[in-house]
Design a protein around this nucleic acid. Structure first.
Lengths: 252, 252
DNA sequence: GCAAAAGTGTTAATGGTACACCCATGG
DNA sequence: CCATGGGTGTACCATTAACACTTTTGC
């Protein structure tokens, strides 16, 4: 299955896979990191299998490292996709026909799989020189609004991840790991608007954000724009992480 | 594995189990439905395995029906527990020693399992005459504050279910399926206080609840109390279910 | 100087918090 | 008639929504 330290299927947890929805933000668009499979005109979420002696979350991190060279991503488990209908043997057939996997793995690949969905927010610019593994030919960001043809139920997985993310915005901040270290208030707002898919009032947004007390105003401004230069902010990481733990807007 | 239409382990999805946290409300306490295992002084969440040709959610419903005779419960998936450390072979040993499972299933039971947690809210009084399957000797409600000795990580699963439930109260109502058809405002409040583990102001609670517009005031009152008889309410099921879908208290 | 977008302010409506007071009931 | 708990009201405060006006910048 793997190129370097080849993993034996006997050591892999049967019938279980993981899939990661990596969200990035660029050009006022929400983007997802996808892998183009070799020989097939379809894309896939970075994902893979978990070894029997590894925790699922740990295994998921290993998968990301091995498939696209990303380490230490904060992943959040959001759902287990366990419908029978998500398994499609035509997919395995193609993989074998194109010699991406060998014939003797046919049976193993054709077993019924359930998959655990994880998502993470990653800074777009940091994921430029990713490596890809031997079953993928490239790794690219795609706008969530213009997804290419994808294998299995990967589009559904992305949809569910996006829904979960939207809902979490009601009780948690977003932005750290998704924006560069320094950013302007309008940039942060654009991120929120993109994730939520709706316009927000500029003035109310700013006030509300500042009231959360997770931002540090620097005394620098973003220069070179043909209008008033906006202030640069940073997240107060201590308070930001505390807010993630405690949650905002608790009603009871 | 099963008594009547015996399920063959070849047809079961390997390494995957489901566990159900059934919440009930009685005597101002939050209770969990637990099964007492035969021959072992430990209790377990009702749970089991999923057949290869069944959706996980469907399989979970079947498990509940087969183990405790409950049907048509609205189950909510909340987490996949996938740590290696949750597997304990001493448990399998005991099951075999006490002939609850046969020797030839040892290997199958000793494989590493991940388990999907589901929870549901069920009306306490409706679950009186539950049947139990052949590996359990009884089925009882236990206060979440006084849980008996439990197998594996089942206490952790209950804790996580409770945390999830608390968090969901910020965006969804609770009570339908957990209270009888008619209930008083103080009873509803007691439910909220129990789940949230905190006291709420009587007058503000009532106003807020009524503002959600999911209650129907009947013109009856709960008689026989030695103080002013409280009004009886019912949930407007249409609006209640709509509220579950739409969510309350969206901040953006 | 003008367009574009940032920064700041104001106001009304809403909802939450923290109370006080009266009412019905059984003992 | 009184203790107990239910029902209703109110005043204050914080937050939200919907706005107007001023400031800075590049061209």
């Amino acid at each position: 299955m793997k190129n370097k330290k080849s993993i034996k299927i006997e050591n892999i947890h049967p019938g279980l896979s993981v899939d990661c929805v990596l969200f990035g933000f660029d050009n006022n668009e929400l983007k997802i990191l996808l892998l183009k499979l070799k020989s097939i005109e379809k894309w896939a979420l970075p994902g893979g299998f978990v070894e029997k002696d590894k925790d699922v979350s740990e295994g998921t991190n290993s998968v990301l490292k091995e498939r696209i060279g990303l380490e230490n991503i904060f992943l959040k488990q959001f759902y287990l996709f366990g419908n029978v209908s998500r398994n499609e043997n035509s997919h395995t057939k193609l993989l074998i026909e194109h010699k991406i996997i060998s014939e003797d793995l046919r049976e193993w690949f054709q077993q019924r799989f359930v998959t655990v969905g994880y998502y993470a927010l990653v800074e777009y610019s940091k994921v430029k020189e990713t490596t890809v593994d031997f079953i993928s030919e490239s790794c690219e960001w795609h706008s969530i609004n213009e997804l290419p043809e994808m294998i299995l139920d990967h589009k559904k997985i992305i949809l569910k991840a996006h829904q979960t993310l939207k809902k979490e915005l009601n009780s948690e901040p977003i932005g750290l790991n998704l924006l560069p270290k320094q950013f302007t208030m309008p940039e942060l707002q654009a991120l929120y608007e993109t994730v939520l898919e709706k316009k927000l009032d500029r003035r109310n947004f700013s006030r509300k954000m500042l009231n959360y007390r997770i931002l540090i105003a620097t005394n620098q401004r973003r220069a070179g724009v043909r209008h008033k230069a906006p202030k640069l902010y940073e997240f107060d990481e201590i308070k930001y992480n505390q807010a993630i733990l405690d949650g905002f807007n608790s009603v009871w």
